[in-house]
Design a protein around this nucleic acid. Structure first.
Length: 737
DNA sequence: GCGTATCGCGTTTTT
DNA sequence: CGCGATACGC
């Protein structure tokens, strides 16, 4: 274990003489004193910075500076949100230093947790044989358990299928008990608390029994490693003498604890983040981490970066105004010296088709102005919002790349192939056995489970597989499967060779299972094969593809110049010359089920993140009518986040003539309200002022009827024009009629 | 009880 | 596209 000298860092006398430093300062990315503070401070540093201010770059400068002043690269640990971001960062650091920075250890929290657990897991009773499961696997387990526990009926009570697993893991990564979480956020499920607790318990037990770990387990066990094995904590803390964290506002409580524990011998921690860009609370991210940092790390130096190096002033004015109404924030006023006076534009399309057509038309104009296609992005709240646009793009021959939504490795045929490899590494992995067995004709869920349970319970998986007596109708195909595993267990073949063997077996199965579109899917298998070629051992291949699934990008090699379609969440940290945000409509953005209060605030920050991706051109569009589930058209207005903006920050694009529908009326009331005659002092309402069936008025939802009063100071109100909403008494501006 | 084929419907956001 | 419900056949 490398022992690191930090003496060079202890005095603040480093003078920025190297070419790297003057390059930084000359490009005005940071002023000299900021640069010195970022790079030469020993001990904890908190960088609070606005969008486009070069947060990540400050980390790069520090890495480069540390290496330059003699710190061994392997003593630096860089934690970023995505692995891609860490690679990009190291590449930049390498360029700055004109040397290779690849020995710096960089990765995601989960990746590093995996590495440490494989190495030190025995200290807390874990062997190195466990499989990492992703969200789809977790859902699979929960579904399996729901039927075996007889909790199928529970389903209908949940808002969505994913809500179950979100709830169970949400309690883990927030470090609060499930009971509290249900009472707090899923109050409507409190009658089923016992069932939910039973399900959660069964889920955790199942994972433990079958050697499976989900994303949260990786973090929980990393923390356990530091808390319960002092010798490991000492070793880790000494090994990584400098710890840096990007996107700190997206960390959860466990991650914050891990940082605190891992840095205990030196406190050399630098975190950067922007509280206004915290958009992952649904996954446990707690932006109070950033607020607490100076208390947790005594003597932390706080550096604020407020100059924006990305967008023009008109875009910044709009984004500043979006975040202005946020309930809680570190106040930052962003400014820029970038030239440009083009105002953001808002387009109210007739419907979704019109919206798509507008985007294609405008993109073609931008291309004529010389903007690269790959420098244009279309962003949206939910991944299915882009379906109509994808159709339009297809017929116009504009190539695009979609990010967010289903990953390549989440498609059925890829999971099938990976399942063969996973059971080789971890024979306890019942989930993968089930996948493999279900491929056999005449074998369904019940039979598959019986066989896989046999295998998981046996000490020798291959023997258990061999000794199972198959049914008459499928004994031939079962024999073929057994032969496959005998062959796979043969010599010690390379991952690529094992893949070949498995593919030989799978190919006919594959063609039968996906008979309508297997040629299209075949390319993915080929790609998987080439990825495998780069791996020495199977375990790291499987870990990598679970933790960081490969993108579809290399599908046709050359076409790098493609339009980016992305969910806002997946666009974080990126920037584009031109950005379209589509579906900025009431009911779509904020998401329909977002309640007032914290969820509403997060949706606002989400719009902020989206808009701050734009450098020069920013377009916000929404359809004025949308199809409802019952195949009727419903008029919708623009997002409340836009109507509440100060006037003059954006331009309306008027196509043909403006039909004055609900959206127009709605706008005029919103804008005229402040100018209207002074309201008498509004009395603060209490829950007792409301009753079932009582008529109320909301500033923009209009008139409605109270249909439910709940304990947590929230009300369900059925609005005449906007349908059912759940509003919180402390946030909604209601008046009783 | 178990497996399979088919139809129709609804999608938050993810390391 | 992936799923749940449903009906049908063994």
């Amino acid at each position: 274990m490398a022992c690191v000298t930090v003496a060079a860092m202890k005095n603040d006398t480093f003078s920025p003489t190297s070419e790297a430093v003057s390059a930084v300062v000359n490009r005005q990315e940071l002023n000299e004193s900021q640069y010195l503070a970022v790079t030469t401070t020993a001990g904890p540093v908190l960088v609070i910075a606005g969008a486009g201010s070069g947060k990540t770059r400050t980390l790069v400068y520090r890495v480069a500076h540390l290496v330059e002043s003699g710190v061994p690269p392997e003593a630096i640990l860089l934690l970023t949100f995505t692995r891609k971001a860490s690679q990009e960062m190291l590449w930049r650091a390498g360029r700055l230093l004109n040397e290779n920075c690849s020995r710096v250890v960089g990765g995601t929290f989960h990746g590093i947790a995996n590495m440490l657990l494989r190495r030190y897991g025995s200290h807390i009773g874990y062997g190195s044989s466990f499989s990492i499961i992703d969200r789809a696997d977790a859902e699979g387990i929960v579904n399996l358990l729901k039927s075996s526990l007889g909790l199928g009926k529970l389903d209908k009570r949940f808002p969505s299928k994913r809500a179950v697993i979100n709830m169970i893991s949400g309690s883990v990564n927030r470090s609060i008990d499930l009971e509290g979480l249900v009472q707090d956020q899923y109050a409507h499920l409190s009658d089923h608390l016992e069932d939910i607790l039973a399900l959660a318990k069964a889920y955790h037990q199942f994972k433990f029994d079958h050697g499976l770990m989900d994303y949260d387990d990786l973090l929980v066990n990393w923390k356990r490693l530091l808390v319960e094995a002092p010798e490991v904590q000492q070793a880790v803390s000494e090994r990584f003498a400098y710890i840096m964290v990007d996107e700190y506002q997206d960390t959860n409580l466990i991650q914050a604890d891990i940082i605190r524990l891992a840095a205990h011998t030196h406190d050399n921690v630098m975190v950067v983040g922007d509280d206004s860009q915290s958009i992952y609370s649904f996954r446990g991210a707690d932006f109070y981490n950033i607020m607490r940092f100076p208390k947790v790390f005594a003597g932390a130096k706080i550096i604020k970066l407020e100059e924006n190096y990305r967008s023009t002033q008109p875009i910044l004015s709009l984004t500043n105004d979006i975040i202005r109404n946020a309930a809680e924030k570190y106040t930052k006023t962003l400014f820029t010296s970038i030239e440009g006076d083009l105002r953001p534009m808002v387009f109210a399309a007739r419907d979704e088709r019109d919206e798509a057509a507008f985007i294609v038309r405008t993109i073609q104009q931008l291309l004529r102005k010389g903007v690269e296609l790959s420098d244009i992005a279309v962003l949206f709240r939910s991944s299915f919002h882009s379906y109509k646009l994808e159709l339009e793009l297809g017929s116009d021959n504009l190539e695009y790349e979609k990010r967010g939504g289903l990953k390549l490795t989440e498609s059925a045929h890829m999971k099938d192939m990976i399942a063969f490899l996973r059971v080789l590494v971890n024979p306890q992995d019942t989930l993968s056995w089930n996948r493999i067995l279900l491929q056999l004709e005449k074998v369904g869920p019940a039979t598959a489970q019986k066989i896989s349970a046999n295998i998981a319970g046996a000490s020798d998986a291959l023997e258990a597989l061999k000794s199972y007596v198959p049914g008459k109708t499928w004994k031939d195909s079962y024999a073929r499967l057994v032969r496959l595993f005998v062959e796979l267990h043969g010599g010690n073949a390379s991952p690529a060779a094992l893949f070949e063997i498995a593919l030989d077996y799978y190919q006919p199965v594959f063609e039968r299972l996906y008979s309508d579109d297997f040629p299209k899917r075949q390319k993915d298998l080929d790609q998987l094969k080439s990825i495998m070629g780069g791996y020495e051992d199977l375990q790291s291949f499987i870990d990598d593809t679970t933790l960081d699934p490969p993108e579809e990008s290399s599908r046709d090699g050359r076409g790098a110049d493609r339009l980016i379609l992305s969910t806002i969440h997946s666009s974080k940290g990126l920037e584009f010359e031109a950005v379209f945000i589509i579906g900025v409509a009431d009911g779509r953005f904020p998401h329909a089920s977002a309640t007032f209060g914290e969820q509403w605030e997060e949706e606002r920050r989400l719009l902020y993140v989206a808009a701050t991706r734009a450098k020069k051109y920013l377009y916000l569009t929404y359809p004025r009518q949308m199809m409802t589930p019952d195949r009727q058209f419903r008029r919708v207005g623009m997002s409340p986040f836009l109507t509440e903006l100060s006037g003059g920050l954006f331009e309306h694009i008027n196509e043909q003539y403006g039909e004055s529908g609900a959206s127009f009326n709605f706008q005029s009331t919103a804008f005229s309200a402040p100018a209207g005659k002074k309201k008498s002092q509004v009395k603060k309402l209490e829950m007792t002022d409301f009753s079932m069936g009582c008529r109320v008025k909301h500033p923009f939802f209009g008139d409605g009827t109270v249909t439910k009063l709940s304990k947590s100071r929230s009300l369900d109100i059925h609005f005449d024009r906007h349908g059912l909403k759940t509003l919180h008494l402390d946030y909604a501006k209601l008046t009783i009629l």
